[in-house]
Design a protein around this nucleic acid. Structure first.
Length: 542
RNA sequence: GCGCCCGUAGCUCAAUCGGAUAGAGCACCAGCCUUCUAAGCUGGGGGUCAGUGGUUCGAGUCCACUCGGGCGUACCA
């Protein structure tokens, strides 16, 4: 119906030219008494045309050529809203469409043929993934799923760097633990990696090589082994959350392929960089940012900005129409530099979409757990999955808008009680599956012939909600708001549970029962599709 | 100091690029299982949308300032 409304408005704009000057928005009113869809077009135009909005609304309606079997009636309400009411005869169409589209109901071809990349997690291999990485991982994967639903061909990419001070310290942390295991007295600085996993890696090296590594350098086998082992663990954790990357992009490639040097030369050529105190600076002030920043340290080592810019250039070179970067709020100061650098080189920075999510706070026993990778007093993502399962982890991490802090009450999540919204959705799906098993035993099957029998408010509201799904998916995806999928699904599940309570299937007259089975099937399809976007399982039984 | 994000019911959060009477869950109170899964449903109480001013037909939403919280503000990433 929304598409239909757009169409009849477009037709009307041939006669009413001013309709072409306004963005037509059709929304579902909060109040049911305000119709199934509503538009504020008349009020938007009132300023421009200096005419009374209700009078304008009248004129618009008079020029709409619409089918009474789709729209039952149109009303003007309040200051000038135009409200549209579904014809109930349109309801069967919606159910038929869903049952015919099945697992593709809600998908869109709007961005078919476009390539997108989502870069997320991108944690350097210095330790196990933490709860904070978990939020990043789940949001990133879900955003990627959503983009696929609206037609994009999506690559998931993990960018990492295995060089630099961080990694040297990591290697040396392992080396010292190794020497400690061999009974040598060691000094273990406070700013070294304190976690148990370092000892485990040292243990493994000791088992494999005995004391042969005593004189090895921290940057050699110690660092290499640490990186390898840690990456294995990271991937195991991601696997548990059903997250798979197409590419792992090593920052080192940028050096090996000469891209860093080329970029440096390019900045110099364009007179965008200068030398001061032995370092190379980029003229960010000329590019609209606050201050100039160092891109090559006086030691000759680049800072992260240079490879970050070079890395993003590869995204353009690889032909992506959209590149999404997902960062925690601790990185919110870095991306403006990257974007400014790209703009300076005439890349279209609007193709890069940077999403910043706020931190996860873990509450345990009523207290906030402060976390630090170094000090190892953190809760790992693995431990969280052990406690509550991957469905709950995935759902909790996307159920809030990414701009909100996520308050994860571990004790509550561990309860696995009915306070958990994941179960609410899954329960709806399981309930429908159960009904379908029961009705099958009764010899009842879905029938699309008598769908007009679905006349109760529970049934009609449910169908209207189902109809919104494709628009909702499109809206969420274009606006990178995964949490709205979960909000939608909770609303849908609530409407289903109401339907379940008031509209019996078994025991109703056969035609009605079979129409209701068709509706239940349609609901299950949409629940399943929504849960698929979130990569949360949809159980047949609970 | 400056930049980004946030402030909505006792708690955790929604609110369709500015819309009509701000909604859920949890918690609290009162009901509903001889009938398809009670992990459910129905009803009830609970709000100065942090504050002040502004923009306009209309503001939780936009602007300015104030207060409070988070994250940054490196020749770390």
């Amino acid at each position: 119906m929304k598409r239909y409304l757009k169409k009849i408005f477009e037709d009307a704009s041939q006669k009413l030219i001013y309709l072409q000057d306004v963005e037509l928005i059709f929304s579902v009113p909060a109040q049911q008494s305000h119709g199934d869809y509503s538009t504020n077009a008349a009020m938007m135009l009132t300023k421009k045309l200096k005419r009374n909005p209700r009078e304008l609304a009248n004129e618009i309606i008079a020029n709409l050529d619409y089918d009474k079997s789709i729209i039952e009636r149109i009303e003007i309400a309040g200051p000038g809203f135009i409200n549209f009411y579904f014809a109930s005869s349109y309801v069967p169409e919606i159910i038929r469409e869903i049952l015919s589209a099945q697992e593709s109901y809600g998908k869109s071809k709007k961005y078919a043929g476009k390539k997108a990349q989502v870069e997320f997690v991108s944690a350097n291999p210095t330790g196990p993934l933490t709860v904070g990485h978990g939020r990043n991982a789940v949001i990133g994967d879900t955003v990627a799923n959503m983009l696929e639903w609206i037609g994009y061909d999506v690559d998931r990419e993990y960018y990492f760097n295995n060089a630099g001070r961080q990694m040297r310290v990591l290697g040396d942390s392992v080396r010292r633990r190794y020497l400690e295991l061999l009974g040598q007295p060691i000094d273990f600085p406070e700013d070294y990696y304190q976690g148990e996993y370092i000892k485990e890696i040292a243990e493994k090296l000791k088992n494999e090589h005995g004391d042969k590594l005593i004189n090895e350098d921290a940057e050699g086998i110690f660092k290499r082994t640490a990186e390898k082992e840690i990456f294995v663990d990271i991937n195991k954790t991601l696997e548990r959350l059903k997250i798979h990357f197409k590419n792992y992009y090593n920052e080192n490639n940028l050096y090996e392929e000469g891209k860093i040097k080329a970029l440096l030369d390019e900045f110099k050529k364009r007179n965008l960089s200068y030398e001061k105190e032995g370092a190379v600076w980029l003229k960010f002030t000329e590019l609209g940012n606050e201050q100039d920043k160092v891109i090559v340290k006086s030691s000759g080592e680049p800072t992260y900005r240079l490879p970050d810019i070079a890395y993003h250039i590869t995204k353009f070179e690889r032909g992506y129409d959209l590149a999404v970067d997902l960062f925690g709020s601790d990185h919110n100061a870095t991306y403006p530099d990257v974007l400014a650098g790209l703009k300076a080189l005439n890349y279209d920075a609007s193709k890069i979409k940077v999403l910043i999510h706020q931190f996860v706070t873990i509450m345990q026993k009523g207290e906030i757990v402060k976390m630090s990778t170094r000090k190892a007093n953190y809760i790992t993502l693995d431990e969280l999955i052990d406690e509550v399962g991957s469905d709950v982890v995935r759902y909790f991490f996307i159920m809030r808008s990414i701009g909100s802090h996520l308050n994860f009450d571990l004790d509550l999540a561990k309860k696995q009680s009915d306070e958990n919204p994941v179960f609410y959705l899954q329960y709806a799906h399981a309930r429908i599956s159960s009904i379908l098993r029961m009705t099958k035993d009764e010899g009842l099957t879905a029938n699309l012939e008598n769908l007009e029998l679905l006349t109760t408010s529970e049934e009609q509201n449910l169908v209207k909600k189902l109809y919104e799904f494709p628009d909702e998916v499109l809206f969420c995806s274009e606006n990178f708001e995964p949490h709205r999928i979960s909000t939608y699904l909770e609303e849908l599940a609530a409407l289903f549970h109401k339907f379940y309570t008031f509209c019996r299937i078994i025991g109703s007259e056969q035609k009605l029962a079979e129409a209701r089975i068709a509706l239940a099937l349609a609901v299950r399809t949409v629940l399943k599709n929504g849960l698929t976007i979130l990569d949360v399982s949809a159980p047949e039984k609970m």
